[in-house]
Structures are given as C-alpha cells and as structure tokens.
C-alpha cells in the first residue's frame, strides 16, 4: 500500500482549479483558430474576440470566462492507495474554496430553492472511480451553466438505434441554438443507466477536442453527428456560419436489453480541463 495525505489532493485540486479558470485547452484553442479561418462577418468577429480574450486572460491573469463554473472533479483512485488525513470530500472542497478565493473567481453555487449562495463555490461535484494501481488521477473541469442548461438526456428505445443516437445529438444542439455560446463541444454518453449515461457524457468532455474514439463505429457516430451539426448553420454565438461545434466526443457503456440511453452534455467554446497524476 502507498499512503497519501489528502492534503496533497487538496493542493492538487487548488493548482488545477487556478490553472483551469485561466486557460483553454490546447486542442480547444487550435479548433477555435481553425474555425475563425473558415468564417466571415459577425461570426469571424466573435471568434476573433474569443481568441483575443484568451490572450488577455493569460496576460492579465483573469478568468477566461466569468462563469468559472461548478467545480467538477473526476478522481481515479488506485486501489493500492491508502488515504490519510482529512476526509477526501473535505480535501477536494478545501482546494476549490481556496482556489476560487485566491483566483478572484466567481462563486456560482447556491441552494436550488432558496437561491442562497454558498459563498465559496463548494461543494464540488466529485466523482470517484476505484481503479488498479497506486496512483491518483485528478481531472478538474469547471463547468459553466449557460451550456449545462442546454444539455439533455434521452431514454431511446433500442429500435431507434444508431440513427436515433445521432438525431438526439443534433437535435439537442439545434434546440440550444445561440444560447450555449457556440461553437460548442458536445459530450455524449451512449448506454449505461439513466444516471450512468449522464456521467459518461460529462466524462466525454474531458477528452481532447478532435480525438477519435478507439471504437470505429463510435468514431463514425462522432464524425457524422459533427457534420450534421455544422450543417445547421448556427455558427459562432448564433451569428450564422459553418462551425456550430468544434467537436463531438462520445463515451459508451453496455446498457439493458430494453433501453438505449443517450445523454448530450453541451460545453461552450471555453473548454477548460486540467489533469494531474499524484
């Protein structure tokens, strides 16, 4: 067994959150540059502003987007690691709390009914998967809600098949229109259960923009859905154009013989995702 003090996890979450708030992933930046070259008019103006914004965020050390998000933490815990110190959830929340205060990030978490703000952006949304080995992998994804609000979960019937999956993806992006800050990155869960499917969609957003899925049939769904989305003509910020999405990323898991769950989690063009292995 390897003993790891959860203070190290807290410190890691702190570093990841600080970095994620200020930085777009390289694959996102590249996709936005390519998109900008293909557009004209208001869409090009919008993408130019987005690329300029990223430079200002770096120079001024300001969050790229004021919606510094709900703190989503995906933690893969090696089963040979013994955690010592404060409880894991507390350690993660502690890292989030300190990062959002020190980084001058917006605190966006509130009670769903009273709308009272928790004041420190906690609790984080923590997923833990137990995996083999003696390492801890931490992925930090600050998730904005302009795009989260446009996400959908469908319980398709098996007869709808592959076509049904593609239609669910395209229709979700179409219905979202200009609202989620297109060009969007689309995370898709295929299979699993009602709740597991939504988690797959979130996990899909942690993959690099433009990465092919290892399963060829799933990679083909990604390509076909992306082409159909970009044929919608919504464009950057809904101003009209060729690039409505910079990528579609799927995760797949076995499901029940009676069902075909599909979750579509929309991510705006500010793809922020940082990772560390302890």
């Amino acid at each position: 067994m390897r003993t790891l003090d959860t203070a190290e996890i807290s410190a890691s979450v702190y570093r990841l959150a600080r970095r994620a708030g200020l930085t777009l992933t390289d694959s996102c930046k590249n996709a936005l540059r390519l998109a900008s070259e293909q557009e004209e008019g208001a869409a090009r103006f919008a993408l130019g502003t987005v690329l300029e914004n990223e430079k200002i965020a770096q120079r001024e050390q300001m969050p790229v987007c004021q919606d510094t998000g709900m703190a989503v933490v995906l933690l893969s815990l090696g089963q040979e690691v013994l955690l010592a110190g404060m409880p894991l959830k507390e350690a993660v929340d502690d890292g989030v709390r300190r990062a959002y205060a020190d980084g001058f990030f917006r605190k966006s978490i509130c009670d769903p009914l009273t709308r009272e703000n928790t004041g420190d952006n906690t609790p984080a949304h923590l997923h833990v998967e137990i995996v083999e080995g003696d390492k801890v992998e931490i992925i930090f994804l600050p998730k904005g809600f302009g795009s989260e609000n446009m996400s959908k979960l469908y319980m398709l019937v098996p007869a709808e098949g592959r076509e049904g999956v593609i239609n669910a993806i395209v229709n979700t992006v179409k219905a979202a229109g200009s609202r989620p800050c297109p060009p969007v990155y689309v995370g898709v869960g295929i299979g699993g259960s009602f709740d597991g499917c939504a988690y797959l969609a979130k996990k899909a957003l942690t993959r690099e923009v433009g990465s092919a899925h290892p399963r060829e049939d799933v990679a083909a769904i990604q390509r076909e859905a992306l082409d159909k989305i970009n044929a919608l003509g919504i464009g950057a910020q809904g101003f009209g154009g060729k690039v409505t999405a910079i990528g579609v990323s799927c995760e797949i898991a076995p499901t029940h013989i009676a069902g075909l769950p599909v979750a579509v989690n929309i991510q705006c063009h500010c793809v922020r995702c940082e990772k560390e292995i302890l």
């Binding site: 919008a46 502003t49 987005v50 300029e52 914004n53 990223e54 200002i56 965020a57 001024e60 300001m62 969050p63 790229v64 987007c65 004021q66 919606d67 302009g146 800050c181 910020q237 705006c268 063009h269 500010c270």
Partner: peptide, 10 residues
C-alpha cells in the same frame, strides 16, 4: 461575445 470574460472585464 459569450466566453470573452477577461476581455470585457478588462
């Protein structure tokens, strides 16, 4: 332009 928070804040 949504997502350009640093530019607008500045």
């Amino acid at each position: 332009v949504g997502g350009a928070g640093a530019l607008y804040g500045n």
